[in-house]
Simulated scan of single mutants.
Amino acid sequence: MATKKPLILVTNDDGVTAPGIRHLIKLMKELGDVIVVAPDSPQSGMGHAITINDNLYCDPITLKKTEKHKEYSCSGTPADCVKIAKQEILHRKPDLCVSGINHGSNSSINVIYSGTMSAAVEAGTEGIPAIGFSLLDYSLTADFEPTSKFVKTITKNVLKNGLPAGVVLNVNIPKLPEKEIKGIKVCRQAKAHWVEKFDKRTNPQGRDYYWLTGEFVNEDQGEDTDEWALKEGYISVVPVQFDLTAHHAIKELNTWNLHD
């Protein structure tokens, strides 16, 4: 009897035509049946935003007539894409959701701003095992081929073993040739922050506007972090939980006088 192929939902935040998602689709088709629901335009930095004050459109598209899998272009955010895929497009819960491959890093503190990871987290809240993949190369001409073996290895393991309840994976891949990638490290998120400033300018009509700029500062010298692994030539895999409760703080807060 033929083994039933896993159903894999593919999405991203760079838009449905971005090279990163096109490469991820190609890899996932080797592992299962693929459905693509992705934004119709770039949605980087959208975090876990959802569309509530505007119409949401999700249209079938065909980028190549030779492609047999189904694809949909959505006017919303990455989180919207996962929601509408589950509620309106898929006929059963997918076995896996993969998001990416993002053009640029989503390591450390960047995870909270990431549309790529928010799509994975949204899937996780629905009980769908999920992975966000990112390559540390922001260029639209980035070479995603060196990621292939590692993306498939991680994906196969999730399909085989599942993930702990309430956990999704944040995978970041250094910009290196395949032969120079040393391997895969399971890590913690490095403690880091952005030193931000706004570049203030004035448009021809005399109105001020701003461009956000900044410098990434890694405060964490631990050798078990994602930033360390990436700097040393490893792929970082960080298990991310979407329960944001600071459990360690509950005991201390219960010592406060909160009854006055």
Rank of each mutant, 00 (worst) to 15 (best):
T3A: 12
N12M: 01
N12G: 15
P19I: 08
G20V: 03
H23L: 12
H23A: 03
L27N: 05
L27S: 03
V34G: 05
V36M: 06
V36Y: 06
V37F: 11
P39I: 01
Q43V: 01
M46L: 10
G47H: 06
H48S: 14
I52P: 00
L56E: 04
T62I: 13
Y72F: 15
C74I: 06
C74D: 05
K83P: 00
I84W: 01
I84M: 03
Q87H: 09
L90N: 07
R92S: 11
L96D: 02
V98W: 04
S99G: 02
G100T: 05
S107D: 15
S108L: 03
G115W: 02
M117E: 02
A123D: 05
G127L: 04
G132V: 05
G132H: 08
T147P: 07
K149H: 14
K149N: 09
L163K: 03
A165P: 01
L169W: 10
N170K: 04
P177S: 13
I181K: 08
K182I: 00
G183I: 04
A190G: 15
K191W: 07
H193Q: 06
K200H: 09
K200F: 01
R201S: 11
D208M: 06
L212S: 08
L212T: 12
V217T: 06
V217G: 04
E219Q: 07
E232A: 08
V237F: 02
V238G: 00
D243Q: 11
T255F: 05
D260F: 11
